[in-house]
């Protein structure tokens, strides 16, 4: 069955959704963009490494988190190996947030949303927001006095905000479920989307100095775009 027809100009038009999706992917995300083996010269900077370190920390978080979820609170509180894996999870969180914020600073100062990259920026902001929620529910899932202290204080705040009835920070089962399942699915999905967005449009170019020829062209182009 033919799934596309050729127009007089040689353009093909999909006649079913499978061919339409394939056409969009072929045009917008060719394999050479998805798995590039060459990068522009400006990628040779440590600033571009922050995002990769963040993803490495995320992978480490998932691996240690799966181990913690499998053995449970009793194990991570009383056994030596449990303490160790718990610590790995905790320090991976520190690395994750530190390098996510460094990545944010880097992209902010080079205006990473330029030239059609607004979706990449927005998805990154949403990932950051979900990560804050995941960290919060993680603190509540520790099953120690620290978690109780945070939960009791947060209960007043969530009640005052009007969400305490359906987001009950004193309910360990609810907080734990949100921490190990719902929010991680959101983060992993959006990180995948974030990476696809980066590969579709390439890495953002550094801003040219204002005095340079290309910098002046860029400034002129932006003035015209703002009109």
């Amino acid at each position: 069955m033919a799934d596309r027809r050729e127009s007089a100009t040689g353009d093909s038009h999909a006649t079913n959704w499978t061919a339409a999706v394939r056409g969009i992917l072929e045009r917008r995300l060719p394999l050479s963009n998805l798995l590039p083996d060459r990068q522009p010269y400006y990628v040779g900077s440590w600033v571009y490494v922050f995002g990769v370190i963040t993803i490495a920390a995320l992978i480490w978080l998932i691996v240690t988190g799966v181990v913690l979820a499998f053995f449970g609170p009793q194990w991570w509180h009383v056994s030596a190996v449990g303490h160790f894996v718990n610590s790995l999870h905790f320090w991976a969180v520190q690395v994750f947030f530190v390098f996510m914020v460094l990545h944010l600073w880097g992209q902010y100062f080079m205006a990473g949303w330029r030239d059609g990259r607004a979706p990449t920026w927005i998805i990154g902001v949403v990932i950051f927001a979900i990560s804050l929620g995941t960290a919060f529910t993680g603190y509540l899932s520790q099953q120690n006095f620290d978690a109780q202290w945070i939960a009791v204080n947060a209960k007043d705040a969530t009640n005052a905000a009007g969400i305490g009835a359906f987001f009950n920070v004193l309910n360990f089962g609810q907080m734990y479920g949100i921490h190990v399942m719902i929010l991680p699915i959101g983060i992993v999905t959006l990180v995948a989307l974030h990476l696809v967005q980066v590969r579709m449009r390439g890495v953002v170019k550094p801003i040219e100095p204002a005095g340079s020829a290309s910098g002046a062209e860029e400034a002129q182009r932006r003035r015209e775009a703002d009109r």
Partner: peptide
């Protein structure tokens, strides 16, 4: 590293 920018995907 390569001086050439990567091929840009059309919008």
């Amino acid at each position: 590293v390569d001086e050439a920018p990567p091929p840009a995907a059309p919008d």
